[in-house]
Amino acid sequence: MTKYLRAWRGGDEGALEQLTTQVYSELRRLAASVMAKHSVNPTLQPTSLVHELYLQLPDVQEIDWQSRTHFLNVAAKMMRNILVDHARKRSALKRGVVVALETDVGGSDRALEVDVLLVDQALDQLALIHPRHARVVELRFFGGLTVQETVDVLKVTGVESSVRTVERDWTFARAWLKNAIEAN
C-alpha cells in the first residue's frame, strides 16, 4: 500500500485508484473484525480503524507528513461509507429501529441516541448549508481523526483551517445534527 501512496504523491493518478481499493478492503476487514469482537465483549473499546490501518502499513516510519495526511483523508472518507453500509445491513436485519445505547461505564446518563444511519442522513443536510462543518464531522466522527489531523487534512484539500476553527465547527455541527435527528 505504501508504494501506491508514494506513487500517488508523486503524481500518478492511477495509483490513487489502487490505493483507494486497497484501503477500502483493508478497512472493511478491520471493521468486520472489530464488530465481531465487540459483539462478544461489549466493554472492549474499538480503536480508531484509520489509525490502526496506518500503523499496519509497512515502512510506516518512511511515510512523510504530507503523504500521511493524504492517507488520512482518503481513509476517513471511506470510513463513512463502510460504517453506513454496515449500519444499513444491520438495520435491514432488524427493521431500522433506533437502538438505544446504554453505556456500561457506570454513572453516565441514560440512553442517548446515536445511530450512524441517522447521523449520515442529517449530515447530508448539514452539508448543504454548512459544508465545512459537515466535512469536519465526516473526518472526526466517522474517520476518527484528531483535531490536529482534521486541520491538516482540510488544509491539504485547500480549505483554510485551524485548531480553533475545527473545535468550534465540531461543537456547532454536533449540536445541529442532534437537533436535526431529534426533530424527526
Binding site: 471493521a31 472489530v34 464488530m35 465487540h38 459483539s39 461489549p42 473499546q45 474499538p46 480508531s48 480503524l49 470510513m79 463513512r80 460504517l83 454496515h86 449500519a87 444491520r90 436485519l93 432488524k94 437502538v99 438505544a100 445505547l101 446504554e102 446515536v114 445511530d115 450512524v116 447521523v119 472526526r140 466522527f141 466517522f142 474517520g143 476518527g144
Partner: peptide
Amino acid sequence: PAIVAEAASTARQ
C-alpha cells in the same frame, strides 16, 4: 467516533 456507536448497536442487536 462512529465506530463505537456502530459496534455498540451491532452488539445490542
